[in-house]
Design a protein around this nucleic acid. Structure first.
Lengths: 152, 152
DNA sequence: CTTCTTTCGTAAAGGTACTTGACTATCGCA
DNA sequence: TGCGATAGTCAAGTACCTTTACGAAAGAAG
């Protein structure tokens, strides 16, 4: 019995899960398998020149403490480092290590590949339409993150 | 031109979270606030005449043990009950209590209301288009998988 | 300069979700 | 009848996130 009921919410979750599983699989194959889902969600919010943990928390919509724990995991695994903020003695700056940058590039590539698969299935035009509908339906304020992996 | 990079995945997650937050809020207001996200995801897989926990696990794409724990929570709070399966001495059947049925009705109403809000923003035609694109892009084979956020 | 307040990073504890591994009871079948 | 597969369960461990709390540094006010 399939639930022809309008379950938009479930569809959204299914689609997201598909992306997340694919991303995780790619990262594992690329040797970055230790990154957890929650940790990986921090990366898109990192500036190339260093980001304060509290700023990171705000961008990611999480608490300082939660981010702190995720960062600890990433630091232990060598993906980011925490250096003192020269402009504020209370604060620190999160920065990607070389290893972390490589993982970001791998993730970016994987996501592009996954979107390519969607595009193959829906067609380019419809995929853009999907993106637009999502953006219209659930506008996300434009915070300016920006991954490092844009060249290529 | 925000040719935004691969952020389809993020958009999907944002949209799903919007639904989930709205649902949780409604349930809390309706007096069913103790149900957690993970527990609530079990409900759509329940048959009116009782469902085996292992069957539930398969439908939800989770392990028997995981479902077992969620069920324990729901049993403690009086939403479902576990009765012996008359046809199989090893097995049991999960059934909604009256309280549980009320919560399902409330959830359904809430989801419809939330979808109505989406429809207000996107328009009826575009909303149907969104649903169709999601269905095409991620065909939910029969019983959609269904897990919650923090697996890795 | 001192004091008050805010903001910063952290720490500890609690709870939920999920995993792996193992155990018991029952069923189905050769 | 015996054995393997299946059902439910218990237990321990990990990940994530929350609340509460605290000390250190910065900023504002006197």
């Amino acid at each position: 019995m399939g639930n022809d009921r309008a379950d938009l919410a479930r569809q959204l979750l299914v689609a997201w899960r598909w992306f997340d599983d694919g991303l995780r699989h790619s990262l594992r194959e690329a040797g970055f398998g230790e990154i957890t889902t929650a940790q990986s969600m921090l990366f898109p919010f990192l500036d190339p020149d260093g980001t304060r943990p509290s700023e990171l928390a705000e961008r990611a919509g999480a608490t300082r403490q939660g981010v702190h724990q995720l960062l600890n995991g990433l630091i232990d695994k060598g993906y980011v480092e925490l250096v003192p903020d020269p402009t504020d003695g209370r604060s620190k700056l999160v920065r990607l290590t070389a290893h972390g940058q490589n993982s970001v590039i791998a993730a970016q590539r994987s996501l592009e590949m996954l979107e390519g698969q969607v595009r193959n299935r829906l067609g380019a035009k419809q995929t853009d339409e999907l993106r637009n509908l999502l953006r219209q339906g659930w506008p996300t304020e434009d915070r300016g993150p920006l991954d490092i992996a844009d060249r290529h």
